[in-house]
Amino acid sequence: MILSRLVSIFLRFGEFVCAAVVLGLSAHFLHQYDKYGVGPKGREIYAVVISSLSVLLSLVWLLPFTSQFMHYPFDLFISAAWFAAFGVFVNWIHRLSCGGIWRWSGLTNGGYCSQWKAAEAFSFIGACFWLASALLGLYVYHKLGNRNAVTDGTHRRRWGRSRV
C-alpha cells in the first residue's frame, strides 16, 4: 500500500508539472492572439480550461488521503480530455509550416513552432500520467480494496442488498 501511495504521489506531481507547462504556454498563446490575432482562440481556451482544472485537481489529490484512489473515473475522464487537447494541438500543427508532428529538430530556437510542439508534447505526457493514475486507482480500489474487514467470521458485502 505504501508503494502505491508513492507511485500516486509521483504521478500527481507529474500531472501538475505537465498541466502547469501547458497552462503557461496556452496563456502565452492567448496573449499572442489578443495582441496580434494569431492562432486558434478556441483551441487555446480549451487547453487553458483543461490545464487549469488539471492543476487544481492534481494539487488537491496530491495530498495523501485514504480515499485518494476512489476518483479513478475522474482521472480517466481528465485523461481523455488531455488526449483531446493533444489532438487539438496536433490538428493545428498540421496547418502551420512547422513540419510533421514527429519532427523534433530545431526545437531549441524558441520560435512559435517550438512552443506549439512543447505544448503538444506536454499534453501527451500529461494524458499518459492521468491514464496511469486512473489505472493505478482502478487496481488499488478493486484489488487491494477487496480485503473486507472480518469481524464475526463472515465477509461483508460491499455493494448490493443486505441479507438481513
Score class of each variant (00 low, 15 high):
S51R: 01
V48G: 06
D75R: 07
S58I: 00
A149K: 05
W102L: 12
R163T: 14
I101H: 08
A84S: 15
L138E: 02
F69Q: 11
N146A: 09
L135Q: 05
D152Y: 06
H28K: 08
W61R: 08
D75C: 12
Y72E: 02
Q115W: 01
A127I: 02
L107A: 10
L25D: 01
A85D: 13
G126P: 02
V49M: 13
L63Y: 14
Y139T: 09
F89H: 10
A149F: 04
R12G: 15
Y112Q: 02
G100L: 10
L6Y: 13
I50K: 08
A27K: 10
C128D: 03
L131H: 02
R157P: 06
R161Q: 15
R147W: 13
R12H: 15
C113R: 02
N91Q: 08
H71N: 04
A85W: 12
M70R: 11
V49W: 11
W104R: 05
I45R: 12
H28C: 01
H31I: 03
G24C: 03
Y33F: 02
Y112G: 00
N148R: 14
P40R: 02
S51Y: 07
R161E: 15
W104Y: 03
M70P: 05
Q32T: 04
A134Q: 06
I78L: 08
C128Y: 01
G111M: 06
G24T: 07
R163L: 14
F65K: 11
T151A: 05
V49K: 10
V7F: 09
S123P: 06
F13Q: 08
T154D: 11
A84T: 14
L30N: 05
G39T: 03
S133P: 02
W61H: 10
L59I: 15
R157E: 07
W102H: 06
R163G: 13
L11K: 13
G87P: 15
H31R: 08
A119R: 01
R161I: 14
G87S: 14
V7H: 03
L57H: 03
W159N: 15
L53H: 08
W104H: 04
L135D: 00
G14D: 10
G39E: 04
S105R: 02
K41W: 01
G14W: 11
H94G: 01
L6H: 13
A132I: 00
S123W: 08
G37Q: 10
G42K: 12
N148Y: 15
Q68D: 12
N148A: 15
P64A: 01
Y112T: 02
N91S: 11
I78R: 06
G111K: 02
S51I: 07
A149R: 04
V22K: 05
L131Q: 03
A27G: 12
N109S: 09
W159Q: 14
G42M: 13
F10Y: 14
H94I: 09
F16G: 08
I93D: 00
